[in-house]
């Protein structure tokens, strides 16, 4: 076979390359495959250069670029994971009745515990019953169509279906009372709820955020009479404040951070 002619099958006369078979007849006869393979190898050896030498630099740059792209993608994914798009942070939740914490707590000065009665004694802070709303609203804004859902609920006994703003995943255990009784104030997690006309989630509620306090509780605990103080500093930043926080840790008998960050503390 001349060198300029591509190798072809002896049986079916089709052009083949190294290692391939064209028909079963060739596969049945091993020596013919060997013949084809040797011809193909001879051809590949004579193959000219396709890429220039400068392609090496291009290849290196593209490998670096790939790593850069990968890292950038990782970073973007992490940021997306922490974003309010994913966590629901800062997103105002529309409720069946536009209850304003700003009005009731900030302007009128009603204590958190007037409505959230079980926050000091139970895992759930407690949602007020319609009767609690009607304590005042049987006389104040009693004719307002705005509050008709409240009155309807009061008449029928069917609870108002509020939209949960802080929805922890079910695999995490959280208890309001232990936090409130051991120096974690409302505003530490819920932000300035007394300034929110429509309630939103002020924290990410991600595990990273929980651990931020469980690792360094001395930076967030506050005196027992300041738990419901909305204007208390959100974090102990200065050294004397941190020292005060440390003394509070022993006063509240808060466990070491090894215990606080143990898996089973929050995942039970």
């Amino acid at each position: 076979m001349p060198s300029g002619v591509p190798p072809e099958c002896v049986v079916c006369r089709e052009i083949v390359f190294v290692g391939t078979t064209c028909c079963s007849a060739v596969a049945a006869r091993g020596f013919r495959i060997l013949e084809i393979r040797s011809q193909g190898l001879a051809k590949l050896g004579a193959m000219p250069q396709i890429f220039r030498h400068s392609t090496n630099a291009l290849a290196k740059v593209s490998i670096f670029g790939a790593i850069f792209i990968l890292l950038a993608a990782l970073w973007a994914a992490a940021e997306l994971h922490r974003s309010s798009w994913n966590t629901g942070q800062w997103v105002e939740r529309q409720q069946p009745i536009q209850f304003s914490h700003k009005h009731h707590t900030g302007d009128d000065g009603i204590d958190c515990r007037y409505c959230h009665t079980s926050v000091e004694t139970a895992a759930s802070a407690g949602m007020p019953s319609t009767e609690t709303c009607m304590n005042c609203h049987k006389q104040i804004w009693a004719d307002s169509p705005y509050l008709e859902p409240v009155r309807a609920s009061f008449r029928t006994g069917k609870p108002i279906e509020w939209i949960r703003v802080h929805d922890l995943p079910d695999y995490s255990y959280f208890n309001h009372s232990i936090h409130v009784n051991k120096g974690v104030g409302c505003s530490t997690c819920h932000g300035r709820i007394d300034q929110m006309p429509i309630a939103f989630q002020a924290s990410t509620l991600q595990m990273e955020w929980c651990l931020g306090c469980h690792r360094n509780p001395e930076k967030f605990v506050r005196p027992a009479d300041r738990i419901f103080d909305m204007e208390w500093r959100p974090e102990n930043r200065t050294s004397e404040h941190v020292a005060e926080g440390r003394s509070l840790l022993s006063k509240y008998q808060i466990q070491k951070s090894e215990v606080l960050t143990s898996c089973s503390t929050c995942h039970r």
């Binding site: 089709e14 052009i15 083949v16 390359f17 190294v18 290692g19 391939t20 064209c22 590949l44 193959m47 396709i50 890429f51 392609t55 090496n56 290849a59």
Partner: peptide, 10 residues
């Protein structure tokens, strides 16, 4: 037929 050893760019 497809070649099993195409000239793979690096």
């Amino acid at each position: 037929s497809p070649s099993p050893h195409p000239p793979v760019s690096p």
